[in-house]
Amino acid sequence: MSFLDIAQKRYTTKKYDSSKKIDEHTIEKLKEILRLSPSSINSQPWKFTFVADEEIKSRLAEFSLGNREKVLDASHIVIFSVVKDAEAFENNKLKLLPEYTTTYYNRVLKPRGDEQIMTWLTSQVYLSLGFFLSATATLGIDSTPMEGINTKEYDAILKDDNYKTLFAVAIGYRDKEDENQPSLNPKFRLDAEDVIRSI
């Protein structure tokens, strides 16, 4: 199946079959794919937490707003987090990078201030999200990116003082009755001429 075929069939899953779990071999593949995600200057300012434990999922579900059922029924929840602040990035990540990248950071990004640095770091985590959603679809796994969560409560449950939650992704296998799947609810996208420009 071509990537275009996958893109046409992939959708945001609204209802999961709680009886179907992703096997551990596939989970390990997804972990490695996330580890290999691209980022500007190879900054890698992230942490990815895979949650399969039903008790932890249940606790997270209480702070998942309209996504509660997805968190409960999906096979796994993957939480995408960013390093907590610019200083932590500089002390723990930046020093691992080659000199030419640290020079770029110090000359171009650092003068913009901590707020702009955190915006830039957060953008890198969103790059990994696109990479991950494509990977899950390629492996025949359904997914739901979720920003509609209480990130502070997620942080309290995850207990990682060095990172802060940005969003989560439910992964698993769709319920046959999920009304959002393209066979029941055709995918809507703007026409190419509205979003693609060739010069």
Rank of each mutant, 00 (worst) to 15 (best):
M1Y: 15
D5C: 05
A7M: 11
Y11G: 00
T12M: 01
Y16L: 08
D17I: 11
D17S: 06
S19V: 10
K20E: 05
K20S: 02
H25N: 08
T26C: 01
L30V: 04
L30T: 02
L30S: 00
I33F: 02
S39G: 01
S40K: 05
S43K: 07
P45G: 06
W46I: 13
F48V: 03
T49C: 06
F50K: 03
A52F: 15
A52Y: 15
D53H: 05
E55W: 12
I56D: 03
E62A: 06
N67C: 09
R68Q: 11
V71Y: 13
D73Y: 15
H76A: 03
V78E: 06
I79P: 14
I79G: 07
V82G: 07
D85L: 10
D85M: 08
K93A: 06
L94T: 10
K95Q: 10
T101K: 07
T101Q: 08
T102P: 08
Y105W: 15
N106P: 15
V108K: 03
V108E: 04
R112A: 11
Q116C: 05
W120H: 09
T122I: 12
L129N: 09
F131H: 15
L133I: 06
L133D: 03
L133F: 11
A137C: 07
I141A: 00
D142Y: 01
S143Y: 02
P145A: 01
G148R: 00
I149F: 10
N150K: 02
T151Y: 10
K152Y: 15
Y154E: 03
D155Q: 00
L158P: 14
T165W: 14
L166I: 13
A170K: 04
D175V: 07
D178W: 15
D178R: 08
N180I: 08
P182E: 03
N185C: 09
R189S: 04
A192W: 10
A192Q: 13
V195T: 13
S198E: 06
